[in-house]
Design a protein around this nucleic acid. Structure first.
Lengths: 121, 121
DNA sequence: AGTTGACTTAGAGTGCACTCAAACGTCTAC
DNA sequence: GTAGACGTTTGAGTGCACTCTAAGTCAACT
């Protein structure tokens, strides 16, 4: 069992943000007698998944929606499937853009190197 | 020569955003006698470059800085070079994250397909 | 018993990147 | 020459995702 600041370290998401995620319905820790949030291994796994989605720009609103569907049960599988597939498409488009830009910048870098070489001679 | 809405179409950046970029010093179109902005081929090239930087999450503030250095002249080449190199590193890190997440989602998708297959039988 | 530090809440504030509104000027076609 | 489509400006508004504040509770240590 983890407190909020413990799990914050483990998953590398600030306690602040975790409370915000709870308010948004993305995570639902249990509470002990004194109201302190308690997180377990399941929460860790879930948050690591959420983190990957956020790192790849899935909006919080969509993660919310995915969570809602997940909690609703197995009959929402196809809707969740669609969300995931759409996001995977987004990721692949994003990779394309990044690769193209990387190439462009490599050329720029080469130009700069030439320029700086010349200015030395 | 292009008006703001013409170049907006060409580079696919809204006229609103182009005015905002001008205010931020990222672009500096000339004006005709009646104060209308006039953009040329150079502006098109520059904006296409800027767009790639934005699409790959370079902050507007850094694009501003890059522009400022560029306008300052050749002696800022090494500073610009560093900005570009840093951004290229960011892009490569981002590609890594996207690839890892893509893999993870592919596994998820497979699980969902199984699940949905079973629910049919 | 007092201090420290982590936890709690509701709600306000922040920073970014647009995005829009309002009021007005200008160009083109009929 | 006037309608309407486009242009201009300043300044305010929006949406997102945090991020912080204030005021308080609670447990553990000295």
């Amino acid at each position: 069992m983890y407190t909020i600041s413990e799990i914050a370290k483990v998953v590398d998401i600030s306690a602040h943000t975790l409370r915000y995620y709870e308010k948004e319905g993305i995570i639902d820790p249990i509470r002990n007698e004194s109201g302190i949030r308690q997180f377990d291994e399941q929460h860790v796994q879930w948050l690591k998944f959420v983190k990957k989605l956020r790192e790849t720009q899935m909006p919080v609103s969509q993660i919310k929606e995915y969570t809602r569907l997940f909690l609703e049960g197995e009959h929402t599988a196809s809707a969740r499937f669609r969300l995931i597939e759409d996001h995977q498409q987004y990721i692949r488009d994003q990779i394309d853009i990044l690769l193209t830009t990387d190439e462009m910048l490599t050329k720029k870098v080469a130009t700069y190197k030439e320029l700086m070489q010349k200015s030395l001679s």
